[in-house]
Design a protein around this nucleic acid. Sequence first.
DNA 1: ACAATAAGCCAACGCTGTTGCGTTACGTCA
DNA 2: TGACGTAACGCAACAGCGTTGGCTTATTGT
Lengths: 366, 366
Amino acid sequence: MRTTGPLDRVAGAHDAAVLAVARRGEPVARTGLAEALQVTPQAISKILTRLIARGLIAEIGSFSSGPGKPTTLYRIVPESRRAIGLHLTRTRLHGVVADLTGQILERHSTEITPEQPVPALIASLARTARELSGHGPGELLGVGVGMPGPVDVDEGVHLGSSSRTDAWRGASIRDLLLDELRMPVLVDHDSRAALIGESWSQPGLLDNAVLVLAEEGLGAALRLDGTIVRGAHSRAGEAGHTVVNLSGEPCPCGRRGCAQAEYLAAQRDGDPQRAAEVLATVVLNLVRLLDVDRVVLGGRSVYAHHQVTMDAIREALDQGLHAGAPVHVEVLLSTRGVDLIAAGAACEVLEHEYGLPSALVGPSPR
Amino acid sequence: MRTTGPLDRVAGAHDAAVLAVARRGEPVARTGLAEALQVTPQAISKILTRLIARGLIAEIGSFSSGPGKPTTLYRIVPESRRAIGLHLTRTRLHGVVADLTGQILERHSTEITPEQPVPALIASLARTARELSGHGPGELLGVGVGMPGPVDVDEGVHLGSSSRTDAWRGASIRDLLLDELRMPVLVDHDSRAALIGESWSQPGLLDNAVLVLAEEGLGAALRLDGTIVRGAHSRAGEAGHTVVNLSGEPCPCGRRGCAQAEYLAAQRDGDPQRAAEVLATVVLNLVRLLDVDRVVLGGRSVYAHHQVTMDAIREALDQGLHAGAPVHVEVLLSTRGVDLIAAGAACEVLEHEYGLPSALVGPSPR
DNA sequence: ACAATAAGCCAACGCTGTTGCGTTACGTCA
DNA sequence: TGACGTAACGCAACAGCGTTGGCTTATTGT
């Protein structure tokens, strides 16, 4: 987004809103957009002119129903921009290239040695990014990295996990990778990247949603009233360390009955049913507390037992919400599979460039 | 806020931001505001001119340090606007008048008969509002009502509690009271009103905060990244019905080990220590999940045992956050006491009129 | 008394979306 | 086949936002 004038914020927000509507894939028309953005059709013309000049939107034809001049139709140009997304775990590095709509154009996967020191890690990330950077048309916007554990997205540093010593703690992954690649880099928490990715491809649908990610641990990301929640220290989403069983399993974090401890214990005991029930409790707690209307599930551990997991969650929601009003909560399994986080990281780069700005007035008043 | 032009959104946001800074009570100067809002001093002059014309801001003098023309100082004019706030429970009706800064000017309390039918309830509310409307100078903006149970703030209707039959369920309290008083009315959930009130008087401080309210039940309100969370169906904040003890006390909502059930059971057993520990678990769960840096406690049940409660929460936070990074979470007891919710409801009216707008582009794209 | 300094005002500017009016392209019907 | 009504669209003038550059004002220090 440009930052010259003061009204660019208005223009930028409108541009982003039009792109969001267009991203859904269906052709868009002037009138519909005017209604969606609450501006006059004439303003939409100006906005579309800007977007067309930037190559993000193109005309695709016209549509006539009844008398009068036919409506001109426009579509997003997916191939106009690209972004690289990298999913980093302790043992693997999975990367994708995504176009402007979040569609995956190319994949690349590598094994990495666990507990790799930071310089070697940066080299691996850069190698995968370079491997992917050749594929696909359109301007390459940058590289997004999604990784487990708390991450400060503003500084691009990994804050270190709470339960163990960590070779990556405090590493300024963003700055190091930026120096290496000479390209914008964005580093964020894995589940947050995943949720941004899921909502990028279906704008508006996940305005009030949580994504629960069950990989090595149990994490979550929150989108409330349209905004991703990061929290005061960029640590929001630690659903794995909320207590669900006061007298339960001890957790490395020092407390008893953390959801993650209960979940892992059930898995260790070979009891996927109990694990699913723990997950269902976490989900129901989130729904009750945050009043989201959509829940997205992802992560290897969910994919492995998706049937029992989905059943347990649906049952818990049916029971738990029945007493109250007839609110409907949709439970979705991520359709991206193993690409979930890598694609999300790529979409986060797109969102950073072309997403809706959250605040109108610059920073908060101190 | 005016709605004529398209740029009023920019102006409105800036006006609100200046008011927010001024609300802290200290005199404000052009330069400081320019820095806080990230605009030029010249723009601040224009903004202040608008606000002075509306009577919201006044000049109070000048301040000279070193050579050069002295800095002109401005202050908010608290007495320029007023709002009425009503706190409704099953047995009592407590009302206040607050000025533009949220200071309480007058109180009025009444007993009401439990399970009062809706028409009588409206009459009681209107009587208290009229009683209060005479006090204090300044334009009276409207009436805010804070009440327990889920409330749809957009429609102004009480949605009915989840556990019992309810004479007020579905009552359009806002519309009925509006017809009666011919004055803007705003109805919201009690804990949400409370949090808005607390943050109104200290702008910016509670940008990432939860307020936990322990009255008849256990409720919460969330403010994340500066925005009050309402949720998809205006039901966010049901912290009382999150499970903390999978094999615990049965709850009227149908599940076992809900925080509220555990809390009330501990109180019933005359064990304030255990009740405090349940509350501490709820707070720690909220802090972990949402990464807030401030927690505000309120409600009669907290005031009665504030020492053990605060101690238990501080201890839990010390233990629970020690393993991770050195993040500091401040735990505050509300200073408003029994006025908490009534004052909050009044502030919610003020915020509706003079608060920061959340979104830049009108509605969300469908 | 005079210079140096800092704050604030005025006027012109670029940008936003809006408004009013004219143009274009279609379907319909005589 | 041609006139007419209709709906989408473009052009130009407009009001309002913060910005820019130059000038005025009020204080301190020499």
